[in-house]
Nucleic acid binder design. Structure first.
Lengths: 216, 216
DNA sequence: TAGACAATTGAATCGCTCTTCAAAAAGCCA
DNA sequence: TGGCTTTTTGAAGAGCGATTCAATTGTCTA
């Protein structure tokens, strides 16, 4: 951020302001839905007037697409970062599963992704974004599975591609359940459910060691 | 429907018109999204003016909830009907899996369900509807699995509840992929993916005999 | 068939959103 | 500091959507 001598945030450069707007759009989308956001919502989130938003993004639609795109990119990059440097495929797999689920019902990144489920059926751009993300996640899982199989850590029950697709599908679905506040299925429970599949699919007793907190 | 002597549709009774409006709302929601539908969209779908819609449903929100509720109910009832009378748990399982997936990208029933994914995080009513549907579907699968296990048709790899939850989750997720027009994953492919899990979970070689048409 | 009731229309109103744009404010640089 | 550019504001106008309601039309019944 840019501050003046008094420590007050001042005007921003073109690129900075665009990033601000993307972040503001992210929040506005979560609050009002991809198809319910209005220009004023975004402007308010950004602490600007609608005119200023229009100055940088003449068309609201483009800003929304950028926001979704950026959110997905960040989501995926964060997942990669978490397993960065890990050796053990089993550990990698467990961490990847965990990182694909929302931290809680209000997780902003997953909330953003979930917004697109309905819109993708109507909007080619959103469909492409979602489909691409899905396929990239499948590839990620597939490479972990293949590596584990090559090292003898996993004994796959079937095609790695099939298992990978199912793992991503499970993540997606439990993400929806969690953000919809299912009374029983929270992040920990979802991890266990997905691991139940991952264990029989890999033949590995995958320990769900939560690095952050003990399971409820 | 009600017709006059000339065979032209005439005014309808209270109940009939409400059902019409629910059907119209269903179409409008699919076209514009749960949070993008406007009163005029529904009115146009119903072939009426906005005033007439308001006469029956003073608040659009209630009509939309009713439409989602009715759509879910129908979706679930249809699934029950398909396996009605079947004896073999294996056949029942396969048919149930198939009936949980959209027939294609434009399947209206699944499109309607998918609309709620994002809205449920923001709207308690929608969250409750979705969660309830999920739980009912889980119960359906669970009873099939339990019956199969009792008869010796299935040899379950783990808790029936866990398997049931995962099967419904997979259906949900592939429903989204299909309605988003994934270039590779269509209804047939999704059935095979879910069956891959169902087979190792039940120890039964579940044949995917498509009763309607040959696989693509 | 007259009268009562139910359903629907269409116009009027209100408020909100998008869009444009001139003016103002803030930063930059010589 | 003074002038130039970039960014932001705020106001004005056009248009749309929700809402209300009087008038109209169709249906039913006695």
């Amino acid at each position: 951020m840019v501050f003046d001598k008094r420590g007050i945030m001042t005007r921003k450069g073109r690129a900075d302001r665009r990033l601000d707007l993307i972040a503001a759009a992210h929040r506005a989308i979560i609050r009002y839905g991809t198809e319910g956001v209005h220009l004023n919502h975004v402007a308010e989130e950004a602490g600007l007037t609608s005119g200023a938003v229009l100055y940088h993004y003449p068309r609201l639609g483009e800003l929304l697409v950028d926001a979704h795109h950026a959110g997905m990119e960040r989501f995926y990059e964060q997942r990669l970062k978490r397993i960065n440097g890990m050796r053990d495929p089993a550990e990698k797999l467990v961490v990847t599963i965990r990182s694909g689920l929302p931290h809680g019902p209000d997780d902003p990144d997953v909330r953003l992704l979930n917004e697109l489920g309905g819109a993708a059926a109507r909007n080619r751009m959103y469909a492409l974004l979602l489909t691409t993300l899905y396929d990239r996640q499948v590839s990620l899982y597939q490479s972990i599975l293949d590596t584990g199989a090559a090292l003898g850590t996993f004994t796959l029950t079937g095609d790695a591609l099939v298992i990978a697709r199912n793992l991503v599908a499970l993540e997606d679905a439990y993400g929806y359940r969690i953000t919809a506040r299912h009374p029983v299925i929270g992040p920990e429970e979802a991890v266990e459910l997905i691991l139940a599949y991952a264990r029989i699919a890999t033949g590995n007793p995958l320990k769900a060691n939560n690095p952050l907190k003990t399971s409820h």
